[in-house]
Structures are given as structure tokens and as C-alpha cells.
Design a binder for these strands. Structure first.
Length: 506
RNA sequence: GGGUCGUUAGCUCAGUCGGUAGAGCAGUUCGCUUUUAACGAAUUGGUCGAUGGUUCGAAUCCAUCACGACCCA
């Protein structure tokens, strides 16, 4: 369904008020005097640079140094006292105070400062000094208004707390809430750490299609789109998996990709329709190798970005220094459900009523593997707080994973849980082309039967497997959920700069 | 999809039993040459999320809808 953009949408009416009208009047006066948006001011220091360089200096020593600085930033606080005034400027590094004095600045510039509003962006040059109370400041001898802020900032003490505005107008959140900014800075550090970790192990980063003719690599509902020139339906990818394994066929034997996946599903504190996934593949390795790698990577990542493997998340203490748990799905379900007979976990007729009793909705087509997985999700998943690998996923729910040599009903697969949430999914790859073709066929049958999350048949992927995929292990890690854990964020929206939202209420 | 809670000035929030819409900050005006959420004085600003209903009278009670938060599926 297409929704054409109308002129009314293109130029929406913006909210106005008395405060904005007053600031617009000031802007018009600035326009009348010349260029209201100059771009010639050059700064030579950030607020944090000055604090780092001079923060410890004695007042008299600083006076003797006579250092000067050119700083620029947003006016966040302002105190006018007749012929002398203070303002607080904020830049990317933090805040620094400026001192404006009629005698030093001259009447025109001093009046300009007095007429400035909170939120305006100023350029200030002057001597670096300390005030009577010892606060490092810049004594302005020149002052330039670089940008007139037309919209008032949130209240200076209480700040911006409305969670909806924080998500919809993230720029205001970032101006007002240093904690919010810190989360996204840490997110960048986490992603940088992961890239470096994998690069160091000899993995190569690649980019594979986001627009795919056949969406594969996961069971999820895809977004559809249309390529006009080819007159062809395309899908936004739900996973890069099948392309990355094609690359392993082509002897990129250690590859990874960190980028966006798209799934046409609901929104929640754990789900956003577009989210960031790390996927990596290593030839001549199995799922146990990847569990070891995952354990090392997450522990080292916490050490690198938090400085400690001990952390608090949503009020609970975690110690990533301890070995991560490793249980099979059947073990975990048996432990959580002592009333069940674990010897009958391969009996669909035995499991079905129990799934229903635990609040599940078992379909007649579900086999024992799918039913056991339902029990796991209903009774175990949310309880896995400490880092835990769950292994031996049923073949029935693992269409891309290699069967276990001793028990073909389960696969050499794990999922990794942290804080009660699934964070990673990895397995030894199915590299038997005929088995893979048969499992695609089963997925197509499920799709025909009405399961719109079932997979498509990807004939080119089968062709690639027919050339020979080396024995390989692969894994996907949900970056957003990992970031939530390491930044103690309750909602995925707190770690996405621009989370998906419904249109604003009109 | 279901449930609970929320939506009042630009921001943060009060608003009693249904009886003329409130505060702080921001804004405007005045004073003030080392302030720290500066201070003192005066002052402007409201479709109480939207639409219906009950009532002599609704921010307040009821219904529906929108958006958001949380919980459940």
C-alpha cells in the first residue's frame, strides 16, 4: 500500500507560541543588520580541553600565563547583573563559563549578550581565568552570535523528562541530558570494540545486500518494496546469513557484517522494526568454538567499555568474570518444570497438553521439537538472567543448522541469553545441500499452510552449497540488546537514536 | 490484540467534593560590575490531547478515539 506524500505533509504547520515569536523578532533584527548565520568563527578549544589544561591551575598562576581561548557553544545558563554577566556555554565536550563585562566588551557586544536567549549558539574569544569562587572561565573580549535559537529549551533545572519528546526529538534530549548522550557514546565504543576484536582474530568485514529478491536467514515477516526499473518485488533483509555463507563458499573463510536488519513486526521494549545485527562466520570451526568466542568477546567488551566485568543491570548484579552457563534446552526445561517427565520430551502427544497448560497455543502441525521450544520460551527464557548458552535446539526449529551427529532430532546450535533476553544465536552450519533443500521445502510447505514467517526456497543458495560450503560455524548477535545490557537501559528505544514511533498525535 | 496508568502555559508540575485556570522556570519591562538553577520588583502567556454525553454548571464524571509508558499475549 502506498501513501503519496501530499503538499500538506511536505510543509506541515509547525507549532508556534509567544516565546518563538519574540525570538523570531530578534532574528529579523539580526537579518536587517547583516548576515544572521555567519560561518567564519573558528574555535581553538573545547570546554573539556580548557578544564583539562587549566582546571587545576592556581588563580594567580593562570593570570600570569595569560592564555587565551576561542570557544563556541550553546548558551545553557545566563546571569546578568547590570554591567557584568555570566553565561554557560555547552559544546560536544561539556560546559564552560564565560564572563562578559561592559568595560571589556564595549556597549554593542555587551548589549548583544544581554539580548541573547538560552539555546543561542555563541562564539567567544578571551582570556582564560578563574573567578572569585575559583571557576574556570573565559573573560570575553569579543562575542559573536552564531545562531539564533528560535525554540526555547526545556526548563533549566528539571530539564526534559517527557519520554515521548525524548524519543521523537532526540536532538533536544541530547542537548539536555548528558546521560542520554553517554549511552550513545558507549554504543559507538561497543561497536568499535567488536570490530576490533574480530579484525584482530583475522575476520574480514563485508557488506551484503539489504535489498534482497528472496529474504532468508531467519524466520520473520519481511518488509516488501518494489524496484521500478526491474519491475520486481524486493524485500528488506531479515538477515544477511545466506549471503555471508555464499562468501564462505567463495573462501572468505572468516567474515562478519554489522548492519541493519528489518522485520515487519510489532514494537516493544525489546523490538524495533529495524535493528542492528552482527553476523560472523568461520570455516573449520563448530558451534562450541563460537560459544568460547562469544564468552570472551562479551567479557572483554564489558572490560573495555565499562572498565569492569562486574555490572548492574536493572537493579541486578552481574559478574561476567564467572564462566557462562551451558545447558541443553531439554535440561533447562526439565529443571524449570520438575513436574514433567524428561524422558518423554521427544513425544509430541505428551508435550502438547503441557504447552497448552503453560499458556502456549500449540498447533496440530507442531512436532515434539517445536513443542519443547514453546515450553522453553514459556517457562525458561525470561529466567535466564546470568549469561547462559542453551544448546541442542530441535532440528524442527533450526532449518539452517547442522544436525547433531549423535541425535539427528537436535542441531549443533546454541542461543545465548543475558538478563532474560535472547542476545545471540549460533550454530554449526548445515552444509549438506540435499538436507538444506529438503528443509527449505518443509518451510515452503509451512508457508503454503499459512505460516507467513516461514522461509522461502532459495535455489541459488542451494546451488552455492552444491559447490561445497566448508564445515563452518556462524552466529548472530543482537547489538541493540547487548548495548541495552552494557548501558543498563530498560528499553531498546533508549539505545536507538531515532526509535520507530507512531505518527505524532495531531 | 488485551489490561493498567498518563496527556493542564514553551518546559517541570499542582489543581480538594463538579462551581471564575494555578506555581516555579522560560519570556517581556525595570534595577544590579564575580554569578553558580544568580538575585529583587512588576508583568504577558491556556482549544486543560480530540470528539461526543451527563449536568444549571465539566480540567474534574461517563463513552469513543489519538499518542505515550508499563504489564500480558
Amino acid at each position: 500500500m502506498s501513501e503519496p506524500i501530499t503538499p500538506a505533509d511536505a510543509v506541515p504547520v509547525v507549532d508556534e507560541n509567544q516565546v518563538i515569536a519574540g525570538r523570531r523578532a530578534k532574528l529579523e533584527a539580526l537579518r536587517a543588520q547583516g548576515n544572521a548565520y555567519p560561518n567564519s568563527f573558528r574555535r581553538d578549544a573545547l570546554a573539556a580541553d580548557l578544564h583539562g589544561q587549566f582546571g587545576e591551575a592556581e588563580t594567580t598562576a593562570l593570570e600570569a600565563l595569560g592564555s587565551r581561548a576561542a570557544i563556541a557553544g550553546r548558551l545553557m545558563l545566563k546571569r546578568v547583573m547590570g554591567k557584568a554577566s555570566f553565561g554557560t556555554l555547552q559544546d560536544s565536550s561539556g560546559r564552560i563559563q564565560v564572563f562578559c563585562q561592559l568595560n571589556t566588551l564595549g556597549e554593542a557586544s555587551y548589549e548583544l549578550f544581554k539580548s541573547c536567549d538560552m539555546g543561542d549558539i555563541l562564539g567567544v574569544k578571551g582570556k582564560v581565568f578563574k573567578t572569585k569562587t575559583g571557576e574556570l572561565s573565559v573573560w570575553a573580549d569579543s562575542l559573536e552570535l552564531l545562531v539564533k535559537g528560535l525554540r526555547p529549551l526545556p526548563e533549566k533545572h528539571a530539564g526534559l523528562t517527557d519520554i515521548e519528546v525524548r524519543y521523537r526529538q532526540r536532538y533536544v534530549d541530547l542537548i539536555m541530558n548528558p546521560d542520554a548522550k553517554a549511552v550513545f557514546e558507549k554504543r559507538t565504543k561497543i561497536v568499535r570494540f567488536i570490530r576490533n576484536f574480530l579484525d584482530t582474530l583475522g575476520y574480514q568485514e563485508v557488506e551484503t545486500p539489504m535489498l534482497q529478491p528472496i529474504p532468508g536467514g531467519a524466520t520473520a515477516r519481511p518488509f516488501t518494496t518494489h524496484h521500478n526499473a526491474l519491475d520486481r518485488q524486493l524485500y528488506l533483509r531479515i538477515a544477511p546469513e545466506l549471503y555471508l555463507k555464499r562468501l564462505v563458499v567463495g573462501h572468505f573463510e572468516k567474515v562478519y557484517e554489522i548492519n541493519r536488519n528489518f522485520r515487519n513486526e510489532g514494537l516493544s521494549t525489546r523490538h524495533n522494526p529495524e535493528f542492528t545485527m552482527l553476523e560472523f562466520y568461520q570455516a573449520y570451526a563448530d558451534y562450541r568454538d563460537l560459544m568460547d568466542l562469544t564468552e570472551n568477546m562479551i567479557r572483554d567488551c564489558a572490560l573495555a567499555v565499562n572498565g569492569s566485568a562486574q555490572l548492574t543491570n536493572q537493579g541486578r548484579e552481574y559478574d561476567l568474570e564467572k564462566p557462562f552457563h551451558r545447558w541443553t534446552m531439554a535440561e533447562a526445561v526439565a529443571k524449570a518444570n520438575p513436574d514433567l517427565d524428561a524422558s518423554r520430551f521427544n513425544d509430541a502427544d505428551y508435550l502438547r497438553p503441557h504447552v497448552k497448560a503453560k499458556g502456549g497455543n500449540p498447533q496440530p502441525s507442531y512436532g515434539a521439537g517445536k513443542l519443547l521450544t514453546e515450553l522453553f520460551e514459556a517457562t525458561v527464557e525470561a529466567t535466564l538472567m546470568d549469561p547462559t548458552f542453551i544448546t541442542a535446539y530441535p532440528t524442527e526449529v533450526s532449518p539452517l543448522a547442522r544436525r547433531n551427529d549423535d541425535n539427528p532430532d537436535v542441531t549443533d546450535r546454541f542461543e545465548f541469553f543475558l538478563g532474560g533476553r535472547e542476545v545471540a544465536n549460533g550454530f554449526s552450519e548445515l552444509n549438506d545441500a540435499d538436507d538444506q533443500a529438503a528443509r527449505f521445502k518443509a518451510q515452503v510447505d509451512a508457508k503454503d499452510a499459512g505460516d507467513d514467517e516461514a522461509m522461502f526456497f532459495d535455489a541459488d543458495y542451494i546451488r552455492a552449497l552444491e559447490y561445497g560450503l566448508p564445515p563452518t560455524a556462524g552466529e548472530g548477535i543482537g547489538i541493540d540488546r547487548l548495548v541495552m545490557f552494557l548501558t543498563d537501559s530498560a528499553s531498546i528505544r533508549d539505545v536507538l537514536l531515532f526509535p520507530a514511533m507512531r505518527p505524532e498525535a495531531g
